[in-house]
Design a protein around this nucleic acid. Structure first.
Lengths: 135, 135
DNA sequence: CGAGCCACTGACGTTTGCGTCAATTTGTAC
DNA sequence: GTACAAATTGACGCAAACGTCAGTGGCTCG
């Protein structure tokens, strides 16, 4: 398959849904929010190579905890002149912020796990006590 | 202070709010959801020692990620005959489930962090490239 | 030519945990 | 007595990311 073929290829909504395990509702929602805007053949959505690439970025963003509005903000810079530079700088900054947030979250999660493990131990201790006495 | 004193002591809603850094709205909300039900002097809420203990459990539950409905489910068993046994067993099971969920979350969080760190590196690399070329 | 099937739009619903009024009452301080 | 703080209820709002109809249209297979 040549590059031309690759870039000429298009997808229907259901094809993308299957490939990335999302619902049509989700894709239309992203479109409504301005994260995607596929061409139409009549009224049917036709996703091209770039739309698909954007979708991949959207899903990646979601995986690392970005909100759709933040993802949109970053994607939108593609359309600006000097887009590369600005887009890269914003992306870099946003990603570091997100990284900080994720790491804070990690700390909290660790604390929660430890607190819960301690409590688990206590509760199971109480159950053992009761079993011993009850027997 | 004797034990009697301790157990006789009561709190107003605002006292508890200050002590645990929650809003009155939150406490009323918990009550509406059936997690608390303080006595009333007339129409004013009076929280006793046990109400306060329940609140502590509620907040602890929240910290480790339980939903209010789950916390309620566990608290409700206090009222059953054989409450101790049943309550402890349910609590133990729920807590292990929650612990599993938290650990899965931890794995996902780790993955997200690593993905984001890789992407960060890539983006910063691109920025460096541009700077080098541009200068 | 009817039966599915896929697609579309628009609107309302869901979940969770409160926040934010607004109007009212009551107790307290001066 | 009056002003002010503190408490109450009820109702509506909000954020996020869709889910779930309901109603409509068009393609295609046999």
């Amino acid at each position: 398959m040549t590059d031309e073929d690759k870039h000429a290829r298009t997808w229907s909504i259901s094809q993308l849904c299957r490939e990335f395990d999302v619902t049509p509702r989700a894709l239309r929602f992203y479109e409504q929010k301005g994260l995607l805007n596929p061409r139409r053949r009549g009224w049917t959505r036709i996703y091209d190579y770039r739309d698909r690439a954007r979708l991949i970025l959207i899903l990646r963003g979601k995986r690392v905890g970005f909100k759709l509005s933040e993802i949109k903000e970053m994607l939108d810079l593609y359309h600006l002149r000097d887009g590369q530079e600005k887009q890269l700088r914003l992306a870099s900054r946003k990603m570091r912020e997100r990284l900080e947030a994720l790491k804070r979250q990690r700390v909290e999660l660790e604390e929660a796990i430890q607190e819960l493990e301690r409590t688990c131990t206590v509760v199971d201790g109480m159950l053992k006590e009761r079993t011993r006495k009850g027997s």
